[in-house]
Write a protein that binds this DNA or RNA. Structure first.
Length: 524
RNA sequence: GGCCCCGUAGCCAAGUGGCUAAGGCAGCGGAUUGCAAAUCCGCCAUCAUCAGUUCGACUCUGAUCGGGGCCUCCA
């Protein structure tokens, strides 16, 4: 039984879908006016994992992420760069697509663009006017919040509380809290013809219009960062529910935002409240970059996409994620435990762990009572327990952070099995033991697949000269060292190892010979 | 000022009204190794403070202190 925490009810609710066996999921996507930073990746990674888990659990999921490609910021940025808004949007959309793809986010079915849905938006707006929830004013169209008696229930605030100054268009509004569905075009701005004159959509209406087109009037899951609860999602609810007279989404999921360690404020947010920010560093953009607002593609040069994905999934999604490079380095160290195990698995079985095809559905991965009968070493019993706990955590509001603990525990259990059974020594191997190991590794692959991790082997570590010549030289070094060890000349053997360690090459003596790897950071 | 969230070991981070409070990073012992590395085993938390409810609270309630988000474009 999957339970999800909905912001609307402020509680965890059992997942009961609109249509049996199907889930419609909408995530508010980016406004494509500048390159995405790591903060923009939180939602896509989490909801990608949610879709994977729902699919794994047997649901047919339609996952929609919108692209906001018309907006004040796009207009301002395109003017500043002397390019058309469409060209800017295309460039930044491509950047976004590259970034989420790198992170393994490939479960999104539709990326509707606002500018491709102007007709739908105009039709939606016309309906709201006809139903008297909206009014035209001087070429603008506003939603009248006083007509919606439920306005404010998502963000838990009253209309009075939301009364601001009304902004620069206050004189055209009936109430300060009214928000624009359609904005009349200023000279030179991109615009589309409409019954109210040339203009463009307001920020909120696109999501109501596009989610309806692709997912229907009521769909299952609406997601986004919790900073969107007000006003964006509140206004979506108002538009859609007043238009249709029925709930817009059954579950409103909001992910916590990326926070910069040792800094005030979310990544990429305003930094005006930082207590003691070094002005020069800020000018040099170092502060904001170290906070994570550097373009995501730059971060990818420093850390692998898998490291970043693992890092983002290591915390329960509703909590803020504390970001810093130190955290990512820590994640790297944690991930290395897995990569070392993968090599070990390959040494033992002769086959890559990546060759194991994990079960695509939960029911396929379930153990049969007979599976455990032949279990003479209690390995599979423990494996089943870790799997069950992992799935329990995922069932409980997609608790990837808690589930991660079970992945580590399974890793340790499999290592222990290899130790206990001495499987690194070929003579100790039996078909039954290798089968047990493989079965355990299959569960590991299953967990990875659910979270979208370990889908392909990590790129070989950069050595700065990891080529054929280096390989041959290393072969020579290891041969000399092996000879020395054979003659019990450990001084020479240790000197070779010590010097190699100093230049960042780690040696590991194993039953089958000595292996060498390039370390992350050469010791000084 | 209004609304909301959080405060668990050196750091990060799950979790529960009552068996030994996951896991990771770092650290310290031990097994293993010629010595290492890797791996395994073990150690490392009176769950911010105070009061209350309860047979019993880290878990519920209230207060206090501390941190954060939203209220304006935001993932």
């Amino acid at each position: 039984m999957i339970r999800l925490y909905s912001t609307l009810s402020r509680s965890k609710e059992p997942l009961e879908t609109v249509q049996p066996g199907k889930v419609g999921m909408y995530l508010c996507g980016p406004t494509v006016y500048k390159p995405s930073h790591i903060g923009h990746m939180v939602g896509p990674v989490i909801f990608d994992a949610i879709k994977r888990y729902l699919t794994y659990s047997g649901y047919e999921v339609t996952f929609v992420v919108n692209i906001t490609d018309v907006d004040d910021k796009l207009i301002a940025e395109s003017n500043a760069r002397g390019m058309s808004m469409a060209a800017l949007a295309e460039e930044m959309t491509a950047d976004y697509m590259r970034n989420i793809k790198a992170l393994g986010v490939d479960t999104i079915d539709h990326f509707p663009r606002c500018t491709d849905n102007i007709d739908e938006i105009i039709a939606f707006t016309k309906t709201l006017i006809a139903k008297r929830f909206a009014y035209e004013s001087d070429g603008d169209v506003y939603f009248d919040v006083t007509k919606d008696h439920e306005y404010g229930r998502l963000s838990n605030r009253t209309t009075e509380e939301t009364q601001g100054e009304g902004g620069s268009t206050a004189d055209r509004k009936r109430n300060a809290a009214d928000f624009a569905l359609w904005k009349t075009a200023k000279p030179g701005e991109p615009s589309w013809p409409s019954p109210w004159g040339a203009g463009r959509p307001g920020w909120h209406i696109e999501c109501s219009a596009m989610s309806r087109r692709l997912l229907g009037e009521t769909f299952d899951i609406h997601g986004g960062g919790l900073d969107l609860i007000f006003p964006h999602h509140e206004n979506e609810v108002a538009q859609s529910e007043c238009c249709h007279g029925k709930p817009m989404a059954k579950y409103w999921l909001h992910n916590g935002l990326l926070q910069a360690a040792d800094e005030v404020g979310k990544v990429g947010g305003r930094a005006t409240r930082s207590a003691a920010v070094d002005i020069e560093a800020q000018i040099a953009n170092k502060v904001s970059k170290s906070k994570g607002s550097a373009p995501f593609r730059e971060l990818l040069q420093q850390f692998s996409a898998e490291t970043i994905r693992f890092f983002l999934l290591a915390t329960q999604y509703r909590r803020p994620v504390e970001y810093s490079e130190a955290r990512l380095k820590e994640t790297e160290a944690a991930l290395d435990n897995f990569y070392r195990f993968f090599k070990r698995y390959e040494r033992v079985t002769g086959a890559s762990i990546y060759a194991i095809i994990p079960p695509l559905r939960r029911t396929q991965g379930d153990f049969e009572p007979g599976d455990l009968e032949s279990d003479t070493d209690s390995l599979l019993k423990d494996v089943v327990q870790h799997r069950t706990r992992f799935l329990d955590a995922m069932d409980d509001d997609i608790n990837t952070g808690g589930a991660m603990g079970d992945v580590f525990e399974l890793l340790r259990r499999l290592n222990k099995f290899i130790d206990d059974e001495k499987l690194e020594k070929p003579e100790a191997q039996t078909p039954a033991k290798l089968a047990s190991l493989r079965r355990g590794a299959t569960v590991f692959r299953e967990m990875g697949a659910v979270m979208g991790l370990f889908r392909e082997p990590p790129a070989e570590k950069q050595s700065g000269g990891n080529n054929e010549l280096v390989g041959k030289l290393m072969e020579l070094m290891l041969e000399l060292r092996a000879d020395a060890r054979k003659k019990k000349d450990f001084a020479t053997a240790d000197q070779i190892r010590k010097r190699l360690t100093e230049i960042g090459v780690i040696l590991e003596d194993r039953p089958g010979g000595t292996e060498w790897t390039v370390s992350n950071s050469p010791s000084p």
